[in-house]
Computed example of a mutant assay.
Amino acid sequence: MSVLLKRQATLDHVVPRTRGGLDAADNVAVACRTCNSSKQDLIFPSEWIPNRDSFTYIKSSEPLPHLTNISRMARRITRLVAQLDPREDPPSVAKVCADHHWRPRAVHLALAEMHQRGAFCVFAYPCAPATRHFQPITDPHNAFAGGTWVGGWE
């Protein structure tokens, strides 16, 4: 809350009204005016997140379910997730790419692929700074699989 006190709060439409988004509670989140303005008509968190490499995190998990016909990078991420220590802070895409010499765009595409296939759910927060957390889902029948939850300030 202290971050918001120094900024002017606005309601951000996750899916902008110009792209069919509604004024419904599940489509709005509290965001500062700066973030809301810079987002324009992009969809958060799939299309817009400032400095996405530094503020997209991959959490650890038990081994992910076996996915067939996935990209090579998605297989690499599957192995990485199993090796991460759950007691440590999750690494950002920027750190993972620096450590493994991977291309950020390839990692983001693989994360999106795995999210669509239900191997991850995404928890996203719109600003101060905007973040995304890819949480692995080990059970493909889990209600969270492939879902995206957007939260404002608590």
Rank of each mutant, 00 (worst) to 15 (best):
D85G: 01
G152P: 07
L80E: 00
L111W: 02
L64E: 10
H115F: 06
H133A: 14
F144Y: 14
P91A: 01
V30I: 08
M73F: 00
D99V: 00
T138K: 05
L4N: 04
E113N: 13
H141E: 03
P104H: 03
A143H: 15
P126H: 02
G118R: 14
A94Q: 01
C32M: 08
L84T: 00
I58L: 07
A106H: 08
I58F: 14
E62V: 12
R87A: 05
V122F: 04
Y125R: 09
L11W: 11
K6V: 06
P140R: 09
Q83H: 03
K95F: 00
P45M: 05
W149M: 13
I70A: 12
T148R: 04
K6C: 15
D12M: 07
A98C: 06
P91T: 02
T138S: 07
H13F: 12
R117H: 10
V28A: 08
F44A: 05
T131V: 03
P86F: 14
A110F: 05
S37G: 15
W153N: 01
S54G: 08
R52E: 09
V93C: 02
S46V: 11
F144T: 04
P63K: 11
P140N: 08
A130Y: 12
D26P: 11
R87D: 03
N51I: 07
N36F: 06
A94N: 02
L64R: 03
D99A: 02
P129R: 11
D53R: 12
G20R: 15
V107F: 09
I70E: 00
T10K: 13
A31F: 12
N51V: 06
V93A: 02
D12H: 09
P65C: 15
